[in-house]
């Protein structure tokens, strides 16, 4: 069952077109990721889905309703990028206050425990990670059917990030659909069932993380330090090998098929040992670079 349906969304601010043409649909119970470089239109897209902005064109349906429908405020929990709370409000007060907004809220104390939100600390005194965790807790405190999380783990240290991922999976396991905006490849790869890659305001790819990676390239790279000089022509003679590049004492072999077997058999015949051997396969990063032409999402 489709819970979020976005069709040909368009949104401009004056002359700047933030979202040119975005379409995707999210099924109940999945973690759907929106991945893209900064300024690609990710945040504008989810703000339109959240009902905070009106698109200039296209249609959006959330749980069968228009995004501005007030009923959705109860059914959709939102964690906004760059949204803060009053300085002197404590974690406990924030959670208690927000839970009173909803007819059947989650147990905020349990949420605070799971997310390690400091209850007695005032907002201004919280670390970036604590503020972020409080913000996530506030998005979940209303027991939403859909949670929209914008830049979920930005500002968290790696350990807290992994912990948060585990929590998001646990939330999904309770049946909550999650729309996740991110620019972390690792996060998208680990969490998302499906991903829309957005660039310059349009969807450039929509697939599972594995599908996106597979579509990128079947090429592999093998790097190693040979124990004795290698005649690269011998390697290049093999059909699996496309290219051999020398990096100082290291060799990098690029190719397809059973590349590893091809390389090791050439080396074995010549009595050469491959030290520090590493095989690199295409990652979501590579898929992202191919799709957006950028080496990094520009953190």
């Amino acid at each position: 069952m489709t819970v979020i349906e976005v069709q040909n969304l368009r949104k401009a601010y004056g002359d700047t077109v933030a979202v040119r043409d975005v379409s995707f649909s999210v099924e109940r119970g999945e973690i759907f990721g929106i991945l893209g470089p900064n300024g690609a239109g990710k945040t504008t897209t989810v703000e339109c889905v959240s009902g905070l902005r009106r698109g200039d064109g296209g249609t959006i349906r959330v749980l069968g309703r228009a995004p501005a429908d007030t009923e959705l405020r109860r059914l959709v929990g939102v964690q906004l990028q760059e949204s803060q709370l009053p300085d002197k409000l404590s974690g406990r007060e924030a959670l208690e206050l927000f839970s009173s907004f909803y007819p059947s809220p989650a147990d905020w104390q349990a949420l605070a425990r799971d997310l390690d939100v400091p209850l007695a600390t005032r907002y201004a005194k919280m670390s970036g990670g604590q503020k972020q965790r409080l913000s996530i807790a506030l998005a979940l405190v209303g027991n939403p059917e859909i949670a929209i999380l914008d830049e979920l783990t930005t500002g968290l240290d790696p350990q807290a990030r992994r912990h948060t991922w585990g929590l998001i999976e646990a939330v999904r396991d309770r049946g909550v659909t999650i729309l996740l905006v991110t620019h972390f490849m690792e996060e998208a790869e680990r969490l998302c069932d499906r991903l829309a890659v957005i660039d310059h305001g349009a969807v450039v790819a929509l697939d599972t993380p594995a599908g996106l990676i597979a579509g990128t390239s079947t090429e592999q790279r093998i790097r190693f330090r040979p124990s004795a000089p290698v005649d690269t022509a011998l390697l290049e003679a093999r059909p699996e090998v496309r290219q051999v590049v020398r990096h100082g004492s290291q060799l990098e072999v690029v190719g397809t098929g059973n590349l590893l077997h091809a390389v090791t058999s050439v080396l074995a015949v010549n009595d050469i040992i491959a030290n520090d051997l590493r095989i690199e396969q295409a990652s979501l990063d590579d898929a992202f670079v191919r799709l957006t032409g950028r080496s990094d999402s520009g953190e």
Partner: peptide, 17 residues
């Protein structure tokens, strides 16, 4: 003005209140 600047008002706009 601080509430608006810091997105507190926007935050509320995403809740039933």
């Amino acid at each position: 003005a601080t509430y608006r600047e810091r997105g507190v008002l926007r935050r509320f706009a995403t809740t039933p209140v």
